[in-house]
Amino acid sequence: MYEELREQIIMLKLHPGRSISENEMSTTLEVSRTPIREAFLRLAQEKLLEIYPQKGTFVALIDLDYVEEARFIREHLERAIIKEACKSFDSNSLEKLENNFEQQKNAVEKKDHTKFFELDEEFHQTISIGADKERIWSIIQQMNAHLNRIRMLSLRANYNYELILDQHEEMINAIKTQNDIKADHVMEEHTKKLTFEQEGLKKEFPDYFR
């Protein structure tokens, strides 16, 4: 139940500020209240839920301080990973990366932001696997919930799909040519993209932010 609710929060199916209850989620997910209560407590520890005794439970508003912490960690770890990928990257992972990129373009054409988000995650995971740094990707994912909510919001608002595609293509080419300097630069720009979009998103979705 924890993973299910966490995903719904990240994918904005449970939007920031929304009131939720154990009874509601128990009915919706067709489980008893006990696993729901346990999931609520874990999500509250991650600052994704806010529980107020006698008042209720609410999906936490997006806190840009938490977003920046996660973005900072992801930037520096992924820059290190892609430089390793430029040194050694197996052909199977490269093929998966290129196939994924084609699927991304298809998702953009269909305006399917949910599918694009999933493919974007898979793209970066594939780079980590190809660089033999999959466990580091798992660490990134543990820290990523707050960042992923604003990433999803950005995609819903149709912010810069073409820029993301261009950067992903540049990453593939940098890995192919083993150009670690280029790869590092592109990944830095890629992971800083949301920094420049935050004010626009706050204006467009003011009720979603702290």
Rank of each mutant, 00 (worst) to 15 (best):
T177E: 04
Q142A: 11
E170H: 12
Q178W: 07
I172S: 03
R6W: 05
A174Y: 03
L61C: 05
P206F: 04
Y161Q: 11
F58Q: 00
V59Q: 07
I73W: 06
Q8P: 08
K182I: 01
H190R: 00
F116W: 05
L147P: 02
A174M: 06
E204Q: 13
Y161I: 15
Q125V: 10
L165T: 00
R18E: 12
F196V: 14
I9V: 10
N144K: 11
N106D: 11
E189D: 06
M171Y: 06
D112A: 05
M187T: 05
H113D: 14
L43W: 01
N160T: 15
I140Q: 06
D120I: 08
K83H: 00
I82K: 03
R210W: 02
P53D: 10
I181Y: 09
D65I: 07
L201M: 01
F209G: 05
A107N: 12
N173T: 07
V108Q: 06
M11S: 08
A157N: 15
E102H: 12
N23Y: 00
E7W: 09
V108I: 14
L201E: 06
M187V: 01
D132N: 12
Q178T: 00
K110E: 15
E109H: 10
L5P: 04
L153G: 13
K176Y: 13
N23R: 10
E78Q: 12
Q54D: 14
I73G: 01
K96E: 14
T177H: 04
L12M: 14
I150P: 09
K193L: 10
L48W: 08
R149P: 05
Y161A: 13
G17R: 13
E7H: 10
F123N: 09
T191L: 07
T195I: 05
T191R: 09
M171P: 00
M1W: 09
D63T: 07
L14R: 13
G200Y: 15
P53E: 10
N99P: 04
S21P: 06
L41C: 02
M1F: 14
E98C: 02
Y52W: 11
I172N: 01
L155H: 15
L77K: 07
R33V: 15
T34M: 12
N144L: 06
M1H: 08
M152E: 11
D65G: 03
H113R: 15
E78N: 08
R6Y: 04
F196Y: 15
F117A: 03
Q8T: 08
Y159G: 06
